[in-house]
Design a protein around this nucleic acid. Sequence first.
DNA 1: CTGTGTGCAAAGGCTTTGCACTCAA
DNA 2: TTGAGTGCAAAGCCTTTGCACACAG
Lengths: 154, 154
Amino acid sequence: MTEPNPGPPIEAPDAEAALTALRARGLRISATRRRMAEILYEARQPLTAEQVADRLGGAGRADLPSVYRNLEVLEEVGLVRHFHLGHGPGRYVPAGAGVHEYLVCERCQALLAVDPHELDDVRAQVQERFGFTARFTHFPIAGLCPDCTREVAG
Amino acid sequence: MTEPNPGPPIEAPDAEAALTALRARGLRISATRRRMAEILYEARQPLTAEQVADRLGGAGRADLPSVYRNLEVLEEVGLVRHFHLGHGPGRYVPAGAGVHEYLVCERCQALLAVDPHELDDVRAQVQERFGFTARFTHFPIAGLCPDCTREVAG
DNA sequence: CTGTGTGCAAAGGCTTTGCACTCAA
DNA sequence: TTGAGTGCAAAGCCTTTGCACACAG
């Protein structure tokens, strides 16, 4: 089980609006929260809570429960979202302008990030056939990436 | 978070072939394994390991680690498969003749079981556009079921 | 006899909860 | 001064692993 590959970079959304939303709810913009947002934007790839904690701590690692709590707050406020790659820890990405949806390879863990519009046809087809509104944001499409498809097929 | 609804019944596959496969690997067909297979077939819906354990135990509950180990063996041999409904425990179903793929509602946890062929078009579209081979067997399509789609939209 | 199956206990990975202390507003 | 943020410890949920005993072949 290797690490998923980075996928394309992530653009920065309107962080200021989100921070304002924080204030509106009586929540505070701590240095830690600000740095967490920066870390996620600069990572330009999905990070686990543990990875965020690693990059936060000056010496050692930041407190993991606090990181989870802050990720939750940032998500409620719309600065961050997360999704699940099969088993293993959740992955966090900045929300906003550069939203992607993902396809994850069950064989090599590669992550294929795509523009949501590229999945519109697929969603439409599922909608038409089953009346079901497919969302691939929280639980991505799983399967075999192009490379693994070739290798498995022959 | 309510329990997912049952979905359509599950047909019995060729259990005998699978049991033969067990023997071929030097493994044994214990009474427990036989009963586990029966339980899954008769359930006619996906069960968690815990539910299987509950239905196994005469008094109390059967040993959960043993249930997991047996589910793994039965899966290797092709009698059983499992998939993941968002968070929460894995769900086990008999494999074979009556295979279904699932769409799971993120809002009400409803489970929509469909014939795999009904997803062929969707798979083809993903294949064509991304070269990616979508599999919905281990990680089902998530989204909103028809009812929740209506309630959310309307 | 040989070694697979089982139960019990414990650990492991990821995440959440409780509580006291700190510190920003 | 007030209550949100943080760190530490502990627990929770699902699952896996280790080990000794039971038992099928």
